[in-house]
Design a protein around this nucleic acid. Structure first.
Lengths: 205, 205
DNA sequence: TGTGTTTTAGTATCACCGTTCTAGAATGCG
DNA sequence: CGCATTCTAGAACGGTGATACTAAAACACA
């Protein structure tokens, strides 16, 4: 099984004609919008612009491509947002995080939601490998919240009324709920109503 | 197009051999576990024990059967829980509601989750009809929370620090989040951590 | 007891599924 | 310039998707 992108063997041959990153981006969009089952290889061929043979050569089978696409999404969307927010003061980081999610959810005209949350209900329950991946990313988000809350409780910007671990878990739950509701009822008042009490909880005496 | 279950015309004929309710229950289980796309008509034929022709005669096509199955699930699971909790005092009703969800989520060894939440991400985003149905049920749950919070704020058992509408929306969001997390990380500490702050919010001065 | 209607079971249909194969074109290296 | 290699395009593959059809069986009623 040759490694994609890397030249193997002792002789050079014809190089790729397509941009692997661009193809992966198109695949992300497909899986993100339609989920794993509802996306056919023919969809992928059409949207990526390369042939099925090239797809299979470069990425393996459909499941492997989904895995790479999910990785790509997480790195480009989730991890990027975490890195961005981690640079802020703790209480502001949490606020900015939810502001961004809110804006993204309300501006999501195609109702794609969050590919990670979609994966959590689509592929994770029936595939232990995917479940582990999704659970790992969720744990990273939880850790981000925990770090923020712990630091905020230490410097007095976040309430100590509840344990930091408990607050972090609550924030993770609210985040998941937001992304589900946004796909069915993307109403500003509803989504803001979901967030407001969670943030109020941080600011109490 | 004959109405299922009802005898039409002026002459009686051969009656159903199968129990329509039992067949619908089996269909609910299929769709609940695997979702709409991942469930094939052959799956349904196998699990319900009746033939494809009977399925089509009795319920119409696959989409119509899913709709009836979702109706059946909502009536038997969601609506039943709402009715049960509505009989309790407001603050206790909310507590009992989440206690039940928590127990159900932790005991869900097949990781089926909640069929309504599954539908919210599976069929609702791509089908306006289903979206309306799911949104309607979510609105019912929101109304249940709102009724509880309003009554609790009136009799002093629930904090008036936040508007009743806001708290109700928050509780709905937490509920959705719970059901997503439970399918990936069904850990008691995590799920309890999600709920605890939401309930604490109700009890503050 | 026939007659009409509707159930059944099984199969046919036809499009699409994920995947692989068959070519032939394009490249780097000896 | 071959030669080995790996790319591309597209057809082909077996399997399965949802659904429709055929014919026999089962009942209610005249």
């Amino acid at each position: 099984m040759p490694l994609s992108g890397a030249m193997v063997g002792d002789s050079m041959a014809r190089p790729r004609e397509f941009d692997e990153a661009a193809v992966l981006d198109a695949a992300v969009l497909c899986f993100w919008q339609q989920g794993f089952e509802a996306t056919s290889v023919r969809d992928l061929v059409e949207k990526t612009g390369i042939t099925a043979a090239s797809l299979y050569n470069a990425f393996g089978d459909k499941r492997a491509l989904y895995e790479k696409a999910l990785d790509c999404y997480v790195e480009g969307s989730v991890a990027a947002r975490l890195r961005h927010c981690e640079a802020l003061p703790p209480r502001a980081a949490i606020g900015a995080f939810f502001d961004d999610i809110l804006a993204r959810s309300l501006g999501d005209r195609e109702r794609k939601g969050c590919m990670l949350v979609n994966a959590a209900l689509d592929v994770a329950p029936h595939d232990a490998g995917f479940r582990k991946i999704v659970a790992g990313v969720l744990a990273e988000i939880e850790t981000f919240f925990l770090t923020c809350v712990t630091a905020g409780q230490a410097d007095g910007t976040i309430s100590r009324a509840l344990a930091a671990e408990t607050l972090a878990r609550h924030l993770l739950g609210v985040l998941m709920g937001l992304r589900v509701l946004a796909r069915v009822r993307p109403e500003p008042a509803l989504l803001e109503g979901v967030i407001t009490p969670a943030l109020a909880l941080l600011d109490l005496p």
